[in-house]
Design a protein around this nucleic acid. Structure first.
Lengths: 360, 360
DNA sequence: TTGTATGCGTTATCAA
DNA sequence: TTGATAACGCATACAA
């Protein structure tokens, strides 16, 4: 009885008690602190004892308890990754797997673990962030999206907790936060200008919700290009999806219906996401509208399967992987040197010309 | 000097010291243990003091330190999610985002966090698993893949550490582990039989590496269907991609070249992954081979964009989301009741007929 | 170069 | 119903 009670004190895996720093210490007849120093590879421990301790650790199968270490260190060596509110849907967008690929890579290289947000609503996610911060679960936070009225960034800022945004801040001075982003304004401007150059004047714009900063930027790029070309902007040519529930490709499909019902149909489309473009293409196919013969399309992101659309789509490669990789690089820097000034990085994009556009 | 030293003892966020259980205790003039009991909502604390303590927690802004709790509890309320070796590539496959969607959902509902593996090689991932287990980082592990010669499962089994496999075990008695899977043999058998029914006799098979159990099962289903139909199996009709480095759609493309170079071309193809099928379709398009007129194709997974291929592909919906959701459900059960017998769940699939097949 | 003592923030045991 | 105390496993300031 007493026995089993005492047993519960010790952490076990598979019935055998975990070996701690003390066990190792006893075995070599040194103090626990010495063992601790050996683990930290302190320069103030003789090579000889280091050797002895290390052998004992091997023999006993010692592995550090990370919770204990975190408690003492006030550091966890893990990064919190915050997915968008619409993760349930947008996770289907290859954008996120791809950022996470970049994130994983850099995190692994620098020996950081990844802790993922799981909430589905804005409020839920905010609670998770608070838990990560107050609970000491992570050393820093990587935000994978930037939306209007976001409460997370102000919170993190006020708490002075290390974080990096993938995207552009909104309602916050750019100099006050570290972020990694594309120049989406310029990107979409270029894309639109490309269409203009091909002789198109009636150009539609299909995108997601204006709650996302990226949408705001894309729209601005589109408008700027038209303005510069002295083409007046027609509100009916701009279709923005507000419904979070809708799958992203559905958005594309519905937008096409809207645009193609117009009396004066556009001859070209700027679509801000490749998956949306897949939806656009499929709907267009159903309607018997040929791309690029009847309608030209430029897209964005250059997700892996983008080249496989029919016709293969012209799109902007935004280097999603780099966004993630650099995001954690900057975050780790911030974690290690909290006092360093905020930095920003604009990751370049590249126009990938394929076969969804035609001269008019 | 001494001051700043002392300062470092206390965990801080944003310059202000974290409030601990002790601070709350002092404020209400109770002992820390009482506060702890209030947090656990122990029935042996009077409602009155509970109320007082709770108010103090609110006023002071108390949040539990999760590392301390984990240390004391020997539990972390987090699940380790192990991605495949080929994560860098396969992460691009919408399969993984979709399982993770299911995983996130259930984890959130049951208040578990997610800790992601980041390693890129078999050995790296194995090390991560050991760290998660020995380091006490997670309470259980969810394996997202099942491969031949895998060392992780035997390890977890030996350590008697809670884990659930999404997929089917190999070299391990099915009764000895808990897993969630599709009946891939039957699935591919059905798919092949569908082709057979349409009159096809020359049926090719395109898939990934036989290192993965899922490939083994798919291949068996294919062979069984042919055998039952008394059609002899031609080795040259079976194209398996062994190269991990290759993108999955590229695999599809290359396989097409191989198959279409054959003197006697197949009239139908069984492809085991929708993204691969995208590759197949694109290459076929380049070659001027029409689907389904010249060649019929069945696929598998029914990933979100599958309906957007041209032609829309006939595929098997394997309920990826459920795989993830049920996976963590079973895992949490195992964590909570380690002594319960192992369970297995076969998630149903469903044939989604679209337009990539034709009677011959 | 090493040991002692203490603290990190909780939970749990035992006593009151 | 509550409090004192020890313990979880590790790291570090200070002493030796």
């Amino acid at each position: 009885m007493i026995q089993s009670t005492r047993d519960n004190k010790k952490r076990k895996v598979g019935g055998t008690a975990m070996v701690t720093i003390k066990d190792v210490a006893k075995r070599v007849n040194v103090s626990p602190s010495t063992v601790s120093r050996v683990i930290a590879n302190s320069s103030r421990i003789s090579e000889k004892t280091k050797e002895r301790v290390r052998r004992a650790m091997d023999e006993l199968g010692y592995h550090p308890n990370l919770n204990a270490r975190s408690l003492s260190n006030k550091a966890t060596q893990t990064i919190g990754v915050i997915m968008p509110i619409t993760a349930q849907y947008s996770f289907q967008n290859p954008f996120f797997p791809e950022v996470i690929r970049g994130i994983s890579m850099k995190a692994y290289q620098d020996n950081y673990g990844l802790y993922l947000s799981t909430g589905q609503k804005e409020e839920e996610i905010f609670e998770e962030v608070k838990q990560m911060v107050y609970g000491g679960r992570v050393d820093g936070i990587l935000l994978l999206y930037s939306s209007i009225n976001d409460k997370i960034m102000p919170f993190l800022q006020e708490k002075n907790f290390p974080f990096v945004l993938i995207g552009r801040p909104h309602n916050i001075d750019e100099n006050d936060i570290t972020f990694v982003n594309n120049d989406n304004v310029k990107k979409t401007k270029t894309l639109t200008e490309y269409l203009l150059l091909l002789g198109h004047k009636k150009i539609g714009f299909i995108s997601g919700s204006l709650d996302y900063v990226v949408t705001i930027d894309n729209l601005e790029g589109y408008k700027t290009a038209l303005n510069n070309a002295n083409i007046s902007i027609r509100e009916e040519y701009i279709v923005l999806e507000e419904n979070y529930q809708k799958e992203i490709m559905e958005t594309g499909q519905d937008a096409v219906i809207e645009l193609m019902s117009l009396e004066e149909r556009p001859t070209a489309l700027v679509v801000t996401d490749d998956i949306m473009t897949f939806g656009v293409l499929s709907m267009l196919g159903e309607m018997g509208i040929r791309v690029p013969e009847d309608l030209s399309i430029v897209s964005s992101n250059n997700v892996m399967i983008s080249e496989l659309s029919s016709p293969p789509m012209t799109t902007a490669d935004i280097n999603i992987y780099d966004l993630g990789y650099k995001g954690v690089e900057y975050l780790i820097n911030k974690i290690k040197e909290p006092e360093l000034p905020e930095k920003k990085l604009i990751v370049p994009y590249k126009l990938i010309k394929r076969q969804s556009c035609k001269k008019i």
